[in-house]
Amino acid sequence: MTAMPRLPRALALAARPLPLTPLSLALTALTRRLTARHPGILRRLGPHARARVLMDVTDAPVLLLLHPEEGRMTAHRRSRPPAHDARITGLLAAFLAMLHGAADGDALFFSGDLAIEGDTGAVLALRNALDDAELDLSAELAAIGGCPAAPLVRFAGLAERLTGYRLRRVAEEGRAW
């Protein structure tokens, strides 16, 4: 297993009683924005867009269910996991690093940092589609909030250094040779 930051347990416990509906609405809005701005995601998913993928972020208080074809992501209590076709399990830090191009999904899997169950084809298609989209969650969240991306991305850089979480897309370093 790779050394990675974990969400503080106190934070996870404090968030547990919060209502899920507003969180699900926000996550769904983010999902719809991402699939609209990056149409290659659904194109690459093809028939796998129909798969319901459960993201079990082990240090988070809730489970997340992604249904790409319907553009929905919903939050669920751990005690009541929803029906799903595939399940990906790992720390929040592993998901964020993979999403932002800082870590390789296969390597996280080989090292035991990520585990998958169910429809392996759907998980691979999702991983490949998101990797090609080169997402930057900080920039996307800034756009949803209607604020300029640059300050938020700079703040995310500071937060990365303080927390160890990868919160922005890995910057291109320019040609090395």
Binding site: A102, A103, D104, G105, D106, A176
Partner: peptide, 15 residues
Amino acid sequence: QRSRAYVAEVVRNFR
């Protein structure tokens, strides 16, 4: 079949 993170790291090392 690997990610762009794998490609970047391995290529940089082998170059």
